[in-house]
Computed example of a mutant assay.
Amino acid sequence: MLTSLQNPLVKLFRKLHQAKARRSQAQFLLEGTHLIQEALATSYPLDIACYTPAWQQAHPDLALRLEQRAERVELVSDAVLEGMATTQHPDGVVAIAPQLLHPPNLDVQGIGLAVETLQDPGNLGTVIRTAVAAGVDGLWLSADSVAPDHPRVLRASAGQWFRLPLAVVDDLNSLLTNWNQAGVQLVATSSYATTDYWAVDFTKPTVIVLGNEGAGLSADLQRQATVQVRIPMAGAVESLNVGVSAALLLYEARRQREWESRGVKE
């Protein structure tokens, strides 16, 4: 069992707390039982897994599956595990995994989601979780957004990160241009729009475009939208959290598509 905080393995895990190291090593951290369960459930590869004796005793089946799946497995003390993790009170297991983003199909036939300059990891994780729940085909994220392998993104996604085709895009504007030319409907929210979001026909191939938490969507991407919609709000509320906005539009799209599949007319 590893008990020294000076062990090179501890230093390797700690390096991956930083985005620069995650990029250079093409690896990221998984922390906590739930994320490990989701990684195993989706057959995501694992390079190194570490857990404490107490965790192994509490989760013997998971520990066995980790031994079978991960390239390397180590039993570590509580102090060593705390030194490896980014959270203050880790629940007994951490792992290193390779960065293997599964890009979505650019030929959008259902509902896609494009997000520009999203900064808060909790917001991105929430958007990912909602997108999977709503049955989105894929997510395209601008390169100046928070890194999708940020530990807080993974935790906020509740493990759904592994189930969403996702791509980081250097030029989101050009991608929207291509979709526009291909006849894909591009839907963006705007405070100046007069069309309510539920009035849009989401049964068409559609990409919903969302912007930064504070500044919203850039002018260039706003101009690309073929449909601009508003989310009606009462009182003095000017805007909603980006995760809430995503949920409203995505579930309206899902509702319309399910009704169409059942032959229900509105």
Rank of each mutant, 00 (worst) to 15 (best):
D120H: 14
Y51W: 13
L101C: 04
R22A: 09
A182T: 15
T203A: 07
V73A: 03
D201F: 01
R163A: 12
S43N: 14
V10W: 00
Q18I: 04
L62P: 00
A85P: 09
D170H: 06
P90D: 07
P60I: 12
N173L: 10
G183K: 10
R262W: 13
P104F: 11
L40K: 03
V93L: 11
R23L: 13
A247F: 01
R262I: 00
D107K: 10
L29Q: 05
P104M: 06
L118G: 02
V80S: 06
A246H: 00
Q56P: 07
G216A: 11
Q56V: 00
P98V: 10
P98Q: 01
R163P: 03
V184E: 10
S239G: 04
G263D: 05
V227D: 07
P104W: 01
G214L: 15
K265H: 14
L249N: 02
N212L: 05
Q37E: 15
G92K: 03
L29D: 03
A133Q: 04
T33F: 07
A188R: 07
A158Q: 09
A236I: 14
T52L: 07
A133R: 04
G125V: 14
L154Y: 11
S190L: 05
G235D: 12
G183P: 03
V207W: 03
S245N: 02
K20S: 05
L35T: 01
S218I: 00
Y51V: 06
A70H: 03
R254A: 09
V93P: 08
T42R: 11
L101P: 08
A234T: 14
P53F: 10
D120L: 06
L139H: 02
Q109S: 12
L141V: 00
G83T: 04
N241R: 01
Y51C: 14
A114M: 15
P8G: 03
R129T: 05
S261I: 08
S190W: 10
R69S: 13
D201W: 04
V200Y: 05
A41P: 01
P232V: 13
D144A: 05
K15S: 13
Q222A: 15
R257L: 02
P151V: 10
Y251G: 00
G235N: 10
D220I: 00
E38I: 10
H89S: 12
Q160F: 14
S4L: 04
V229Y: 04
R223E: 14
Q181P: 02
R65V: 13
Y192W: 11
